[in-house]
Design a binder for these strands. Structure first.
Length: 261
DNA sequence: ATGGTTGACTTTCAA
């Protein structure tokens, strides 16, 4: 099965570009971030008419995540455990049933800017909660794909111009360390598997401003972390870079993994 | 140095 993540930056603004990409991709399951819609406002029937099962976890105006699946889903849960007072819609889990069952965690990790400050504190606290949930998922010893917009540039090679990001919440040492603490629990960074020693890129985000796309001034902040049981099933990974060049594009592009499952 | 863009939603914030 092919599992993808796409930060669409607004489902209403992206309905055409998203629909076009869905028809070109042969993805079986897609996690979406930044739907920027409440559940009732999501164009559910548009996607159901195209054969997708739709699960949303929305919020007014900002954030919001969703799952589109062509395969059956079970045990859908919404929200990241660990803080009952957290109102932000950034996390959804489900089990997708293919030849094998795979647990999917779709996430939109807080941006955290400006840093330092309360938004950065929230980011780091959210990452601590994610680490706790990630440990539980690993302990289950099943195929798990934890994917989405992590809003973290893991290393200097993951930015075209890392010097521009040194004070940014996406690249500050605490953010990178928090992601490493999660990854080092035993997760594989799927987009690094094909070229582990690459020195520049690949990128998944290009800002709308200052001609970032035209200059290829990108960063890699969308990630797929695989449990060992999922890592053993990898057949192929990819980044659909051409999506950034289309009409009314998101500032992110889709990332994906194909599993023998 | 500044400004540069987009989306949701109202006047400005978030990214």
């Amino acid at each position: 099965m092919k599992i993808a993540s796409f930060n669409i930056n607004g489902v209403k603004a992206r309905i055409e570009a998203l629909t076009a990409w869905l028809s070109e991709s042969d993805a079986d399951l897609v996690v979406l971030q930044e739907i920027k819609s409440v559940d009732e406002g999501f164009p559910r029937s548009h996607f159901e008419d195209l054969g997708w099962t739709v699960e949303t976890h929305g919020q007014k105006g900002f954030n919001g995540v969703a799952i589109l699946s062509k395969l059956p889903l079970e045990d859908v849960t919404r929200g990241l455990p660990g803080d009952d007072g957290d109102e932000q819609a950034r996390y959804i889990e489900a089990t997708v049933i293919g030849a094998r069952a795979v647990r999917i965690a779709g996430l939109y990790l807080p941006n955290g800017n400006p840093a330092p400050g309360p938004k950065y504190d929230y980011k780091l606290a959210w990452m601590a909660r994610l680490r706790a949930r990630a440990a539980e998922l690993l302990a289950a010893e099943i195929p798990v794909v934890m994917l989405g917009d992590y809003n973290v540039i893991p290393e200097a090679r993951d930015a075209a111009r890392p010097e521009l990001w040194v004070d940014d919440a996406l690249f500050r040492p605490e953010s990178r360390a928090a992601l490493r603490r999660i990854a080092h629990q035993g997760w594989s960074d799927a987009l690094r598997l094909a070229d582990p020693f690459g020195t520049r890129g690949p990128f998944t985000f290009w800002d709308y401003q200052a001609g970032a796309w035209q200059k290829d001034n990108g960063i890699r902040i969308d990630h797929l972390l695989l449990s060992p049981e999922a890592s053993d099933l990898v057949e192929e990974t990819g980044i659909d870079r051409q999506a950034r060049a289309g009409d009314k594009p998101s500032d992110h592009v889709p990332v994906w993994v194909r599993l023998a499952a």
